[in-house]
Amino acid sequence: MTQHNIKLATPADTELLALLGRVTFRESHGDYIEDKTNLNEYLDKAFSFETTQKEVNDSNNVYFIIYKNHFPVGYAKLVLNATSPFIPNERSCRLERIYVLDEFISQKFGIDLLNQTVEKAKELNFEVMWLSVYIKNTKAINFYLKNDFEEVGSISFKISKQGYENPILAKKLFDEKA
């Protein structure tokens, strides 16, 4: 029987998060980035030990790691108090990353990570969770739309000098009636 659990990451998990981040970003976005030099430069910067350590130690970031039978298979990063021009006047947080190793995507670990981050955001009384996702990543966009996110805008995400269109999706965390 497969068992999985999600744990809150700590600074002791920095190396693991940096490696998971680098591998899962390449798996999910590598085919879309034509210039592999740009991709490698981005990975070296965004998922370096130093960058990851700084982000893990920032109290405005919450990381979760999901394990299958004690093996780390994915992670999520929630940025607290993250504003967006597309989400006015509300307490908002950003689901900046939710990545699962390709081999484990079909096992629905993404939904468990999403649910964990939503519960954490609600616990901290955030009203809206938002994220950006690459426009060609239709699998991810459909996943979020199926889980009550709605498109509210769009930004250009830069890797080196190349811009990539990213819709902004948002989800209300509490019922209007509540």
Rank of each mutant, 00 (worst) to 15 (best):
F49L: 02
A12L: 13
M1R: 07
L124K: 13
H4I: 07
E41R: 10
G163P: 12
V56D: 15
K139M: 08
E27M: 12
R91K: 07
F126C: 04
E90V: 03
G21I: 03
S59K: 12
S160W: 06
P72E: 02
I98L: 01
M1I: 14
E96K: 02
K158P: 15
H29T: 07
E34W: 05
A18H: 06
E50Y: 09
T2L: 11
G74K: 00
L173D: 07
K68L: 15
I65A: 00
K45M: 13
A170E: 02
F86I: 03
T2W: 01
I111T: 06
L95E: 04
I135W: 13
H4S: 02
T138L: 13
N125M: 08
F49D: 09
K108M: 06
S156T: 12
S48R: 10
E34C: 07
A178L: 09
F109W: 13
L113Y: 01
D13I: 11
P11C: 12
T24G: 01
I33T: 01
T37L: 11
K7P: 11
C93S: 14
N89P: 11
K45N: 13
K45Q: 08
S106G: 12
K68P: 11
R91M: 10
I155S: 01
L131A: 02
L113H: 08
A9G: 11
E34N: 11
I168H: 14
D58S: 15
A82D: 05
Y63L: 02
H70Q: 12
P167K: 03
N60G: 10
M1Y: 13
L17V: 05
L113G: 04
L78G: 01
F49P: 13
I66S: 01
N137Q: 03
E176N: 14
K172S: 08
S84F: 06
K36F: 01
D13L: 09
M1S: 12
A46C: 08
V100K: 00
S132L: 00
N147A: 10
V133Y: 03
M129Q: 04
D31P: 04
F126D: 06
Y63R: 03
S160A: 14
I66Q: 00
I33C: 01
F86L: 10
E119Y: 03
T24W: 00
N40W: 07
